[in-house]
Design a protein around this nucleic acid. Structure first.
Length: 228
DNA sequence: CACCAGGCAAGTA
DNA sequence: TACTTGCATGGT
């Protein structure tokens, strides 16, 4: 793996040094192996999944996406033409189906208005411009936007989620009160801007969280991060 | 039965 | 600004 960027002055939020972050990645990669994210066959499917998986188990998202595929609706044009009330019925298993149907529609309309209805133009746009446009959509917050940029567009941006916060704060590697932006800046200052690395790192954190870092549970004995 | 899952926005004080 | 609440299905 490539080495890290030079370190700068750190704020008090930075609890650990960069080499430890590389060690953690190496441990996770050795322990779990490659994760092959994002589970999705096309950029459009990835984008849809990114919204449907908000605060939701991935298994439920799969059911919703299967429904769309069966209906021949998993394309930009088909979803844009589908009334939001109908869309909600197809994605029902993913939960929050009314708000998510509206959020998907909001995104499609943004792409229609600013990128001539071409998802690829959004994904190929300059990273931070694309990010701003994604964040302007009601229902797309930082994690969803960054997931789309990283996993849909192969942009080197680090995705932070509840597992990232939980795993690193539980191991005393990050302050508990760290917010999305500070955690993201932390990873991105410590690591080289490599989309493949960010892809695998985030997926490994989620894998670890599911296996060994459950909510409202004490630190797990079998966790490969113990004894850092 | 309770609790949780790869968030986000809106409301309240 | 800092909390709290609504959104909702399906698995353990």
């Amino acid at each position: 793996m490539t080495r890290c960027l030079p370190q700068e002055n750190w704020g008090s939020a930075w609890v650990i040094e960069k080499n430890r972050l590389v060690d953690i990645f190496d441990r996770l990669h050795s322990f779990f192996g490659p994760q092959y994210w994002w589970p999705g066959e096309t950029p459009f499917e990835i984008v849809v999944g990114a919204i449907l998986t908000q605060n939701t188990n991935w298994g439920n998202v799969c059911k919703a996406i299967t429904n769309l595929k069966k209906g021949g609706l998993l394309s930009f044009e088909a979803l844009l033409a589908l009334p939001v009330e109908n869309l909600a019925l197809y994605i029902r298993p993913s939960g929050y189906y009314n708000v998510k149907a509206r959020r998907l529609k909001n995104l499609l309309l943004m792409i229609e208005g600013r990128y001539q209805g071409e998802l690829d133009l959004l994904l190929q746009d300059e990273m931070m411009t694309g990010r701003e446009n994604l964040l302007s959509v009601q229902g797309i917050g930082p994690e969803t936007a960054d997931s789309i940029l990283l996993y849909g567009g192969n942009h080197p941006i680090f995705v932070v989620d509840t597992y990232t916060h939980r795993v690193f704060s539980r191991h005393n590697l990050l302050a508990d009160e760290s917010d999305y932006t500070s955690i993201q800046e932390y990873f991105m200052r410590m690591l080289p801007a490599d989309s493949s690395l960010f892809n695998e790192y985030h997926a490994l954190i989620v894998r670890l969280g599911k296996a060994f870092c459950k909510k409202n549970r004490p630190l797990c004995e079998q966790c490969p991060l113990n004894g850092l």
